[in-house]
């Protein structure tokens, strides 16, 4: 409960901070719209000469684009801003102020800031999903909807955990801009259903960097193509990665050496 209250205060402050810079807000909105249009255009090009790719039709693949945009919004609204701040804090030594607070340090470090305008991506992603479903005439069953929501939740946890592990590596490497760039590049592959890729890459995107769990499987669930066992795998993976990132974080904090003053 206390943590929810903290979040509401943190995000209220984030909102105030962003309102200090008005031009940023407008620029941001256009950026989001532009990137979404770009993603859909890309999809269009793919389907120009054929109706199906990897057993996915145009509007089915558009669902994947919707989830891609939704999670991209989460990355940009929540993960990216906290990542860059934690790295800065570790480099400058102000991370001391995070550790000195009687609040879980991982919570403080990873959820402290929110770029509220970037949530527009989340809304647009949801909008695209709804639009695709309407065009498909798709009315998912209750079970499929719950499975879809389950996959989205797991996807969010998986994404958070991978991201946090990258942040944690900053305790050793200090500057990890390129690591996060690399992840962003890999995440780009999530624009398309994982089955469009050659099989080796499909394996990598499912088991090594589980992007498939983030964008493809929620869409598949809505289409009634992802069954319960896969959801269990997603849950296990999410739980495992989350525990992993918590342990890694604790280990890193223990080894933290602080920048000198």
């Amino acid at each position: 409960m206390r943590y929810l209250r903290l979040l509401s205060i943190f995000y209220r402050n984030s909102l105030y901070t962003e309102m200090e810079y008005r031009a940023n807000f407008i620029a941001n909105f256009f950026m989001s719209a532009f990137w979404l249009a770009f993603a859909i255009l890309g999809l269009h090009v793919f389907f120009y000469h054929r109706d199906q790719i990897g057993a996915w039709g145009y509007y089915e693949a558009m669902l994947v684009v919707g989830f891609y945009s939704l999670f991209n919004g989460l990355i940009e609204a929540l993960l990216q801003p906290n990542l860059s701040r934690v790295i800065e804090q570790i480099r400058m030594g102000t991370f001391d102020f995070v550790l000195i607070k009687p609040v879980n340090s991982q919570f403080m470090a990873s959820l402290r800031h929110l770029s509220i305008w970037k949530l527009a991506d989340v809304a647009m992603g949801l909008g695209i999903c709804v639009y695709a479903m309407v065009r498909l005439g798709l009315v998912p069953s209750m079970g499929d909807l719950i499975a879809g929501a389950g996959f989205v939740l797991c996807g969010a946890v998986i994404l958070y955990s991978i991201w946090l592990m990258m942040v944690t590596s900053a305790f050793w490497f200090v500057r990890i801009d390129n690591i996060s760039e690399l992840f962003t590049a890999i995440y780009e592959t999530g624009r398309f259903p994982v089955s469009v890729y050659p099989s080796w890459m499909r394996g990598v995107l499912t088991f090594v960097v589980p992007i498939a769990f983030i964008t493809t499987f929620p869409a598949a669930a809505l289409l009634g193509r992802a069954k319960v066992p896969l959801l269990w795998v997603a849950l296990l993976l999410a739980a495992g990665l989350f525990c992993g990132c918590v342990c890694f974080w604790r280990y890193a904090v223990k080894r933290y050496s602080s920048a000198s003053s």
Partner: peptide
């Protein structure tokens, strides 16, 4: 030498 206050608020 280090501050914890939010710079913009």
């Amino acid at each position: 030498q280090k501050n914890q206050l939010n710079w913009d608020l």
